[in-house]
Every structure is written in C-alpha cells, then in structure tokens.
Amino acid sequence: MSTQEKKQTVQAVGDFTPYEAGKGEEYMSDDMRAHFVSILNKWKQDLMKEVDRTVDHMKEEAANFADPADRASQEEEFALELRNRDRERKLIKKIDKTLQLIQDKDYGWCEDCGVEIGVRRLEARPTADKCFDCKNLAEIKEKQVGKA
C-alpha cells in the first residue's frame, strides 16, 4: 500500500466509532453493513471535497511566470496534485464498487477463498476485497513477478 493510500485510509478510518457486534449477531448483518456504508460515504465525501479544493487552488494559483524556473516549479506542483487526484478518482470508483457490493449483500467475504474478511480489517481498509492471508499471498506473488 502506498503512502498516499495509507494516508487516505487513516482519513477514512479516523472519524468513526469501531463497530461492536451484538451477542449472537451474524457477520454482515444489516447494522454492520450500515456501519460500513457510513464509513465509505464519509470517505467519498472527503475525497470529493479534496477534488474541489484542488480545482479552486489551481484556478487561484495559475499564473504566467516570466521566469522559466518559477513556471516549471508551478507546473510540477500542479502535475503532482493532478496525479494525486487521479489516484483519488480511482479510489472513488473503488468506493462506489464497494458500496454496490454492500447493497448486493456480497461485501465482507474474500473474493479468492470466500472466508470472512473481518470487521477490524474492513474498518482499517473499507475497500478490502481479500482476507489477510490471500492479500499477503498476492503481495508475495507480486514481489516475485516484479523481480523476474
């Protein structure tokens, strides 16, 4: 997970009360799904505010500098912001996909092995679609392929 993703996860996870399942409550009950819908919608709203902030910032800061070094610095700053917003745009799509999974009652189970992902893992990374073991295995495989 990149530093940006970790920062975004902290933003998403920082403003909620951890879910406490009731005695005998089944995994991914209506209340549990509502908890994650709330987290995901808040996260999406925060990301959308960032997009608006970036647009406003770029409009306010746009200037034609006579000095080529100043112009290059500004263009580099804008390029970095746009790259970050592109990552956030992709994350918003993933949040929308996750919200659809919740609506379809398919949320919370590993897409590879079918076991419960777990409430705490989902609170840490609400868009997680793999259990810890499958995600760990996928990362190991990715590292091996990357070195080849």
Rank of each mutant, 00 (worst) to 15 (best):
A21Y: 08
N84Q: 12
M48K: 15
M28S: 01
K6D: 06
S73W: 05
E5L: 06
E20H: 11
Q8L: 11
T127E: 01
E60W: 15
E81M: 03
A138K: 04
Q100D: 08
R121S: 03
K6N: 11
R121Q: 03
R71Y: 06
K141Y: 02
A72E: 14
H35A: 07
D129P: 02
V13M: 10
K90G: 04
T54A: 12
R121T: 00
D56E: 14
M58H: 03
D70I: 14
R120T: 00
K105W: 09
A124R: 11
A12K: 02
T9C: 14
M58T: 08
V10K: 15
R53H: 15
F132Q: 12
G22W: 04
F36C: 04
V13A: 03
V145I: 13
G114L: 11
E75S: 09
E61M: 00
D31L: 10
M48G: 03
E139N: 09
K97W: 13
K6T: 03
Y19E: 03
H35G: 01
L137G: 00
V51K: 15
L91N: 02
E116W: 07
M32D: 05
R33E: 12
D67Y: 06
K6F: 14
L91I: 08
D56H: 13
D31G: 06
A69L: 12
Y19N: 02
E61I: 07
T127A: 05
Q144N: 08
A21G: 12
A34E: 05
E123S: 11
E139I: 03
S2I: 06
P126S: 04
K97A: 08
H57Y: 11
K135A: 15
Q11K: 12
L99E: 09
E88D: 10
I92P: 00
L80K: 06
A79R: 13
R85D: 10
F132L: 13
A12S: 13
N84D: 07
V37F: 04
T9Y: 12
E81Y: 05
P126E: 00
F16I: 11
A128Q: 00
V10E: 14
E61N: 09
K130E: 05
T17F: 07
K141H: 04
W43N: 00
D112C: 02
D70G: 07
G118Y: 01
Q103H: 09
E88C: 01
S2L: 06
A72Q: 15
